[in-house]
Amino acid sequence: MSRKIAYVQAFNEAVRQEMQANDDVFCAGEDIGAFGGVFQSYAGLQKEFGERRVVDTPISEQAIIGLGVGAAVAGLRPIVDIMFMDFIAVAFDQIINQAAKLKYMFGGSATVPMTITTGGGGGLSAAAQHSQSLEALICHIPGLKVVYPSNPYDMKGLMTSCIRENNPTIMIKHKRLLGMQGDVPEEPYAIPLGKANILREGTDVTVVSWAKMANDSVDVADQLASEGISVEVIDPRTMQPLDTETIVASVKKTNRVIVVHEAVRFAGLGAEVAAQIQEEAFDYLDAPVGRVAAPFSPVPFSPVLEAHYQPSPDRITEAIRSVLARPGA
C-alpha cells in the first residue's frame, strides 16, 4: 500500500524494515541513538531495536567507519553514519584503503557488506565545511558503490538495496530533500543499484542530473514544454556504477545533452558523463555536451551568495537553450 511520506522517513523505514528482517543489521553513528540523528534519519530505531543494534559513537569518523569495516568482515551488516558528507575526508583511510580494498586484498575471502550513510549537498547556508557535494571523490574509488536518491520512493528502494548489498555502499541523503514528500509503498522493496531512472521523457535534449538538481531539472523541463521544447531528464540514481547505457540511448534519441550537478564543475561527475557520451555516442551529437555546475570555489555561507553559487533553474534553462540553438535556422 502506498502513501505519501518524507524522504527522511523513507530512509528510516528502509533501515527499520531491514533491521526487522535481518538480525545482522545494526547502526552506528554520532547521536543516532537517543537523539535519532541530526536529521532524524534514525529516529525511533534505538527505542525499537535497543542500544546494541543502534549505537551512539564518540565523535570520531575514523572509529565509526573502522568499526563498520571490522564488523562487516566479521559477518555483520553494519550501517554507519557520517553526519555530513564533508566529514568523510576524516575517514578516508578507512573508506578508501580498507572498506574499498579488503575484498580485493584478501582475494575475495573477506567481504564488507557495509553501508555508509551521510548527508550531502548545500542550500542550508551551512557554510563551506558542511555543504559540499563530494560524490566525484568517492566515485573515483574502485570497490565503492555510491547512490544519491532524488525522491522518497527511490530513497527507500535504494537504501534497502544498499543494506542488502555485499560490498561497501555509500548512501548520500541530500539535505534539502529530507522533507520532500512522495508516494512510498509500505512493504519493503529494492531498486537495483546501477540502474538509472528516466524522470521525464523528451525528444529534443537530454538532461542528466541527480539528487536535488534532478528535481530542479524536471521543473525546468515542465516550463520549457510550454514552449514546445521536449526535455528528457535522466536521474542515474546510482552514481557508481553509472548507468551509461540509459544515458547513451537517450542521447542517441535527442542528439543533445547537458549535465547538471551541484558539485564544482572542474573534475565533477559531469566531466565523466560527458566523456562517456563522446566515447559511446560521438556520432549522435549535434552539439557539445553542456555542463551546469558550481564554480570552482568553496560553498559560500551567505544565503545570497550560495543561491548564486548553486545551479539555478535559470542557468539550466539557459544551458538547454544553448545546445538547442540554431541561429541560422
Partner: peptide, 13 residues
Amino acid sequence: VRGTGPGGRIVSA
C-alpha cells in the same frame, strides 16, 4: 550544405 547551428555549424536537421 548550409549549417544553421552556432557559427554556421551543420546539424543533423
